[in-house]
Computed example of a mutant assay.
Amino acid sequence: MSAPASAPAAAPDAGTTGRRVEEILDRLAGSGDEEATAAAAAAEELVRALMDFYGAGLARVMRLIGDGQQLALLGDELVASMLVLHDLHPENVTTRIGRALDTVRARHPVETEGFDPDTGVLRLRSTSPGGCGCPSTAQTAQQAIENALSCFAPEVTSVRLDTATAAPEPPLLQISRRPPTAATAS
């Protein structure tokens, strides 16, 4: 008798996993005694060894599958984040930013205004027609964009989202008949 099939676990996300690893390493190093410091150093060495091992394996996979099949992998957030983490992603940062934004544009339409690789700041402009400019809507969009970028383009360290604000309506212009003048009053 076989066990019932369970639903597949959700794929881990690179940002969450990275933060979790950092928290664990910080906890190990945080107690301050000599034994804990040695354990923290050993844990960091273990993480580096595993990163090197998995990075070498991913590099080999990318070489073996060839260019045509690589494209299918690049759209997967988990695979893309692993390739970026190991500096194996074949696309440049601008292309990866575009790919990340494509995953959220249906709900949060934005255009890229510019990316500064020195500071990691990505400037975006909301193109949402009739957007209300509500702070909660802008915050939701910002969070969705940052989550997508953490997988595809971790070089982006900060997102500046300028929301389009509607131009103020012009004042109502009252048009009426001209008052009579001396020349027309006779």
Rank of each mutant, 00 (worst) to 15 (best):
S2W: 07
A3H: 03
P4V: 07
A7L: 12
A7I: 08
A7F: 14
P8S: 05
P8H: 10
P8E: 08
A9R: 15
A11H: 05
A11L: 10
P12F: 15
P12G: 10
A14W: 15
A14P: 02
T16S: 10
R19D: 08
V21H: 07
V21L: 15
E22S: 05
E22G: 01
E23S: 13
L25Y: 11
D26S: 15
R27Y: 09
A29F: 04
G32Y: 14
G32V: 05
D33K: 10
D33M: 03
D33L: 03
E34G: 07
E34R: 09
E34A: 11
E35W: 07
T37G: 11
T37P: 02
A40C: 13
A40N: 12
A42P: 02
E44W: 02
E45D: 09
E45S: 07
E45H: 12
L46N: 00
V47D: 00
R48A: 15
R48Y: 03
L50D: 08
L50I: 12
M51D: 05
M51C: 00
M51R: 01
D52E: 02
Y54K: 01
Y54F: 00
G55V: 00
G55S: 00
A56H: 01
L58S: 02
A59F: 14
R60I: 06
M62L: 10
R63G: 04
I65L: 11
I65V: 14
I65W: 07
G66C: 05
D67R: 14
D67F: 10
G68L: 03
Q69E: 11
Q69F: 11
Q70G: 06
A72R: 11
A72T: 07
L73F: 14
G75D: 14
L78G: 11
A80N: 10
S81G: 13
M82Y: 12
L83T: 04
V84E: 02
V84H: 04
L85V: 01
H86W: 04
L88E: 04
H89F: 14
P90D: 08
N92R: 01
T95K: 15
R96F: 12
I97A: 09
G98P: 04
A100F: 01
T103F: 00
R105T: 05
R107M: 09
H108F: 15
T112Q: 13
E113V: 14
D118G: 07
T119E: 03
G120K: 10
V121F: 08
L124Y: 14
R125D: 03
S126L: 13
S126E: 15
S128W: 10
S128P: 03
P129F: 09
G130V: 03
G133D: 13
C134Q: 13
P135F: 00
T137Y: 05
Q139Y: 09
I145V: 11
E146H: 06
E146M: 08
N147D: 11
A148R: 12
L149K: 06
L149M: 12
L149E: 09
L149P: 05
S150Q: 05
A153P: 01
A153Q: 00
P154N: 00
V156Y: 01
S158K: 13
V159A: 08
V159W: 12
R160F: 08
L161F: 09
A164F: 05
T165H: 15
A166V: 06
A167F: 14
P168S: 06
P171M: 07
P171T: 05
P171I: 02
L173R: 09
L173G: 03
L173S: 06
P180E: 11
T181A: 12
A182V: 01
A183D: 09
A183F: 12
T184A: 04
S186K: 14
